[in-house]
Design a protein around this nucleic acid. Structure first.
Lengths: 218, 218
DNA sequence: TAGATTGTTAATCGATTAACAATC
DNA sequence: TAGATTGTTAATCGATTAACAATC
């Protein structure tokens, strides 16, 4: 279905389309035009049509797009219909927040296990799942073959742990450690999440917003 | 110092520069060239020089950049030297993770208070700070005048709560609710964090990475 | 059918890269 | 000084927007 290779800019917009379409679907909306959707999302109708047409013609002239069909189509493009097996490393507050509140099922992901090296956390329950000792991680991987690892661990151990997991067949990393996980593995997908960078960006925009309103009201 | 208006693409790279420079500084590195930094960060030397020169010439021909100076300079550009007063709404696992592990001091941010509407959380301690009842939020804002609000609350209440906070002078929102906080306030900075979108992107890239390695090993 | 809206091409705009003279 | 590396301009590349014919 994909016509050649699609730019990262387009890909990064797909989850947002998917989310808005899910809300529309939940609200009972049957059809939507690129114009109406663009107004809701704060972008241009042209961009939406251009983005969607990277993958095929999902709309109908004079009608627009069927919300349910488009939602499912984008889900397939994102690979949310594929099943994945994930492990979570780090059962601190962030790890627990993710284990409890992330909608894994929506993305075909099953959380197989949660690991921590802190003895005071090992054995506790998170969402009905026991926190296991990191010492058993290699054996667990050999037995259950997870393909996604969620890293909520300190930056010091991130690189080493990731390398070990790659050897055990993990091919996708969702990385929350304060470290840009190396791009030097072939065929491995890494999504680095840097909450600190996001907060710094907010500080910048706050400064800019202040500057603007000053010049407006001098 | 900024020469005209700087594009969002550049801004979004600044926190990452800042982070890498902080690591270099911690490692005792005194100077670095755009070439060396670009190799570390996985981008081009041209881009680094171009980005930095949006704000001024911080380097020296034949020498490179002084790590400490550049680090501090970028911190100032990002407005991390300015002081801010923040409140955190939602004391669930995510809220607690942020309260405990986010380096607010690095960005001049003081966390003034934590709020939740769940009676079982109100009165508990998070990092030595009591969780307060949301009922007292308006009064607290009037008394302490926070300028940043961190939203770790359900999507249903995000919009309403944000509107109330804007009336109380909050000008920056770090929003973790599964909702794109409306862009319709003038002079208000919003940073929407969608962890779900990030995970969906990982699923997509995992699919693509699989496709590649299949074609490599047919 | 007439009106609406897509799919798609062409035009514009912006961002990245390359190149090199300036200069430390 | 000679070598290195910046600051900056010009060239390239890619992404967004505009326009409109196709068509439901």
């Amino acid at each position: 279905m994909p016509k050649g290779s699609v730019s990262l800019s387009v890909i990064r917009r797909l989850p947002r389309y998917h989310r808005f379409l899910r809300d529309l679907l939940a609200a009972g909306t049957v059809r939507i035009s690129s114009g109406d959707l663009s107004a809701k999302m704060g972008l241009t109708a042209s961009q939406i049509r251009q983005d969607l047409n990277c993958f095929g013609g999902f709309g109908q002239q004079g009608y627009g797009y069927n919300v349910k069909d488009l939602y499912e189509e984008i889900g397939r493009i994102l690979g949310l219909d594929q099943t994945h097996r994930a492990i979570l490393l780090g059962a601190g507050n962030l790890g627990r927040a993710i284990a409890l509140h992330m909608d894994f099922a929506l993305r075909g992901i099953t959380l197989l296990g949660i690991f921590d090296s802190d003895p005071s956390l090992v054995g506790t329950q998170v969402g009905g799942m026991p926190v296991r000792d990191c010492a058993g991680l290699a054996d667990f991987c050999a037995a259950h073959r997870p393909d996604i690892a969620i890293l909520c661990i300190p930056k010091e151990s991130a690189n080493r742990t990731a390398a070990m997991l790659v050897r055990h067949g993990v091919r996708g990393f969702w990385n929350f450690s304060h470290y840009d996980l190396a791009l030097d593995y072939e065929g491995i997908a890494v999504e680095n999440v840097h909450l600190g960078d996001s907060l710094s960006t907010l500080c910048f925009r706050l400064k800019e917003a202040g500057r603007e309103s000053e010049s407006l009201v001098p």
